[in-house]
Design a protein around this nucleic acid. Structure first.
Length: 429
RNA sequence: GCGAGAGUAGCUCAGUGGUAGAGCUCCGCACUGUGGAUGCGGCUGUCGCGGGUUCAAAUCCCGUCUCUCGCCCCA
């Protein structure tokens, strides 16, 4: 084999079967987003590094972004997330937009990380945001939107859950426990790692980061309190609204959910697979009430989430929830070419059928019919049409159903109708 | 950045020092107006790359690159 330049690490080649998965997700996401009244938008794929420097969190900007200088020396980043672009876009047109607004987006993002299962360096992300409403009910709508996608994809509440917590609640609790404000970020980091470490290791980690024994057991107790949400002024309303939206089965309280991004201010949530070979979150989001003011806009509350395509795809594949026949030709009908002399007649026939609204392709060269039938079968066509000298003489077309093996000859004028009928029939077993 | 595993035909992989293999795919024929099934035949390799040990290396050693999985972090 000749040397082939390798694909860039962490990127994927989207052969038709893989591209079909992305398209399927995009379509399903569009349907769900639009059913909640969200409008599609997008930001640039390239952004100034300064956009992220402010608020995205050190790690994300310094370690995980693809950054390069342009010809004038400005540092440009391939977008690692969308929220900062969204916030800028809104700040720029704040007076022209009608709030609250609901926007969604689906596009590529880049992060410089080491690739592994469910994670690459180039991935797609669904973003949905509701800007200009500060209520817990608005938070609930986003959680319900996420749950609706799962339901639509065929993922049940026993397979994926949206876990919810509230940062203000956690901060208040820490304060009550006598943990100084300066330690809160550290405690959040400790909580965030609860699931990833064994009990002993987790305790050691916590003490190592500066908690004393008493504070540690207090934090431990906090994480075991399944009823903690009742102390929040927001979460009871949140859960009532989730229930009203019909998504209660997908949404649960989990005190361990904190989220890494610095800009979250209130309710945060994270979707996780209940049982899967990927122990990685499917989606994450939350409320960010200060972000708009931080980038220089008028203060405006917002809530939103992002969902990557990679973990979701792994789960859908594991549960066999991806659409079948992803590698099949979109044309279910192939016109064979009998001979050099009849080639153009076959092309005409194909064009005629396309004009009648069918998806049809013609074999491009006069090969042996056997080879052409085999090709039709392999690429997933349902019907193979033959128009040889006999058919041309009789103004007819022979149509073979490759699924049943049955073949009939129809007058050419009736071909389109006959094809439609045959395609509607379920393939014989 | 750290740790582990893997790189052999287009694909999946076997091959633990002695002539580089299998299955699938592909191509041809049986079957020149008809696919799937079957049978027969055929094509395809710097054994990731570089060095070392040896009479002899896909195999042992060293280095290196890439991929996969995990850690970190996160979608």
């Amino acid at each position: 084999m000749k040397k082939i330049i390798q694909a860039v690490k962490g990127t994927r080649d989207f052969y038709p079967a893989e591209k079909a998965v992305i398209t399927f997700l995009y379509q399903t996401i569009r349907e769900v987003s639009e059913s909640f009244g969200y409008q599609e938008y997008d930001g640039p794929f390239l952004e100034s590094i300064d956009l992220y420097a402010a608020k995205s969190g050190e790690e994300l900007v310094k370690e995980q972004s693809f950054v390069f200088p342009d010809k004038s020396g400005n540092l440009i980043a391939l977008r690692p997330e969308l929220t900062p672009s969204l916030v800028r876009m809104i700040a720029q047109k704040q007076r022209q937009l009608h709030f609250p607004l609901r926007w969604w987006s689906f596009g590529p993002f880049w992060r410089y990380e080491s690739p592994q299962k469910g994670r690459g360096r180039e991935f797609f992300q669904w973003n949905a945001d509701l800007i200009g409403a500060a209520s817990p009910e608005a938070d609930a709508e986003l959680a319900a939107l996420l749950a609706s996608l799962f339901r639509k994809l065929g993922l049940g509440p026993d397979q994926v859950q949206v876990y919810v917590n509230n940062r203000r609640l956690m901060e208040e609790e820490l304060r009550v426990m006598g943990i100084p404000d300066g330690l809160h970020e550290i405690v959040f980091k400790i909580i965030d790692r609860r699931d990833k470490l064994a009990d002993q290791d987790w305790q050691a980690y916590a003490l190592d980061l500066g908690l004393d024994g008493k504070q540690f057991s207090a934090v431990q107790g906090l994480l075991e309190d399944r009823e903690l949400w009742k102390k929040s002024p927001e979460l009871p309303r949140f859960f009532e609204a989730v229930d009203a939206l019909g998504a209660a089965d997908y949404v649960a309280y989990a005190p361990r959910i904190i989220r890494g991004l610095d800009y979250y201010t209130g309710t945060v949530f994270e979707a996780q697979a209940v049982s899967s070979t990927v122990r990685r979150s499917v989606a994450g989001g939350g409320r960010y009430d200060n972000l708009m003011a931080d980038v220089g806009g008028d203060p405006l509350p917002g809530v939103g989430f992002a969902m990557g395509d990679m973990v979701l795809s792994v789960i859908l594949k594991e549960l066999d929830l991806l659409p079948p026949d992803r590698d099949a030709s979109p044309a279910r009908v192939m016109v064979t070419v009998f001979s050099e002399d009849t080639l153009l007649a076959s092309y005409q026939l194909a064009a005629e059928l396309r004009a009648a609204g069918l998806d049809v392709y013609s074999y491009p060269t006069p090969e042996k019919l056997g080879k052409q039938f085999k090709h039709a079968d392999r690429v997933g066509a349902r019907l193979a049409l033959v128009q040889g000298p006999d058919e041309i003489k009789a103004q007819a077309v022979a149509i073979k159903d490759l699924a049943s093996g049955e073949q009939k000859t129809y007058p050419r004028s009736e071909a389109a109708g006959a094809i439609r009928e045959l395609l509607d029939k379920p393939p014989a077993a």
